[in-house]
Simulated assay, not measured.
Amino acid sequence: MPEVIFAGPDGRLEGRYHPQPNRDAPVAIVLHPHPQFGGTMNNKVVYNLHYAFHSMGFSVLRFNFRGVGRSQGEYDQGVGELSDAAAALDYLQSQNQNSRHCWVCGFSFGAWIGMQLLMRRPDITGFVSVAPPANLYDFSFLAPCPASGLIINGTADRIAPPKDVTTLVNKLHEQKGITITHEQIEGADHFFRDEEQHMNPMLDTVKTYVTRRLSEVTR
């Protein structure tokens, strides 16, 4: 497991980085759930998304936000965590200077952070937001949303209820120039606990979507 330590805005950040031998490989960061509710880079959804991107040929970085694991600092209400994500993307891009495609993937709280990072970084070419908690956080900053992406959630999610995710998607659909793809995994809760029925279908959906997007830009 390739462990990395890189400089964050409030001290060192701990991550796991899996590069590809191809120096032109696309890059992706994967962002974990809420630090104050047990969220870490080793969360099962985050771990599986990391390896899903790697299997598609991405050089992938996941990391612990400030105050989690061996990452320095303290929880900062999302403000500092957004800065952490920007620092992680800087680190990843510094290791892959020939890469032309950059993706951000976030789960739950990480989806909220990832969408904010999308607004700050025009170099991000695509995104995946898994179970974005649209009932808990304000996503109105996505005006306009600068890139097309996938939003995916479970129909039995009680933490980020499907109706709130659908409302968010409908607002984004009104914007021109981008395409928001929305997929729901039938019966899945927030954490996609059932591997065969929920986790694997979610990962397959992500891989199908991202592979299609990559094939469209490399034709």
Rank of each mutant, 00 (worst) to 15 (best):
I5D: 06
G8M: 01
R12K: 14
L13V: 01
G15K: 00
P19A: 14
Q20R: 14
P21T: 15
N22S: 14
N22F: 09
D24F: 13
D24R: 14
A25I: 09
P26N: 10
V27Q: 09
V27A: 06
V27Y: 06
A28P: 05
I29P: 02
V30K: 01
H32F: 07
H32C: 03
H34A: 04
P35H: 00
P35V: 01
F37V: 07
N43C: 05
V46R: 03
N48G: 08
Y51G: 02
A52Y: 01
A52G: 08
A52L: 01
F53W: 07
H54N: 14
S55L: 13
M56K: 09
G57W: 08
V60H: 07
V60E: 11
V60N: 01
V60F: 00
V60D: 04
L61V: 05
F63K: 04
F63E: 01
R66E: 06
G67Y: 00
V68P: 06
G69N: 06
G69E: 03
R70T: 02
E74P: 04
E74C: 01
E74T: 00
D76V: 03
D76R: 10
Q77K: 15
G78M: 05
V79S: 11
G80L: 07
E81N: 04
A88S: 01
L89R: 03
D90M: 10
Y91S: 06
S94G: 15
N96L: 13
N98I: 13
S99A: 15
S99L: 10
W103T: 03
V104M: 08
G106L: 06
F107R: 08
S108I: 05
G110L: 05
A111G: 11
G114R: 06
L118Y: 00
M119P: 02
R121Y: 03
D123H: 00
D123N: 10
I124L: 03
T125F: 00
T125K: 12
G126C: 04
F127K: 10
V128T: 02
V128F: 04
S129M: 10
V130A: 10
A131I: 04
P132A: 11
N135K: 11
N135R: 09
L136D: 12
L136A: 15
Y137R: 14
P144M: 14
P144I: 14
C145D: 02
A147P: 03
S148A: 12
L150V: 05
I151T: 07
T155P: 09
D157L: 11
R158V: 15
R158A: 11
A160H: 06
P161F: 11
P161S: 10
P162L: 15
K163L: 14
V165W: 08
V165E: 00
V165C: 09
L168D: 01
V169I: 13
L172W: 00
L172V: 10
H173T: 07
K176M: 08
K176V: 12
I178F: 12
T179R: 15
T181A: 08
H182L: 12
E183R: 15
I185Q: 05
I185V: 15
G187M: 06
A188C: 12
A188K: 10
D194S: 12
E196F: 07
Q197L: 10
Q197C: 02
H198E: 08
H198C: 00
P201K: 02
M202K: 01
D204R: 13
D204V: 11
D204H: 09
D204G: 08
T205E: 02
V206S: 06
V210R: 09
R213G: 00
L214Q: 12
E216N: 11
E216D: 13
E216V: 12
R219F: 03
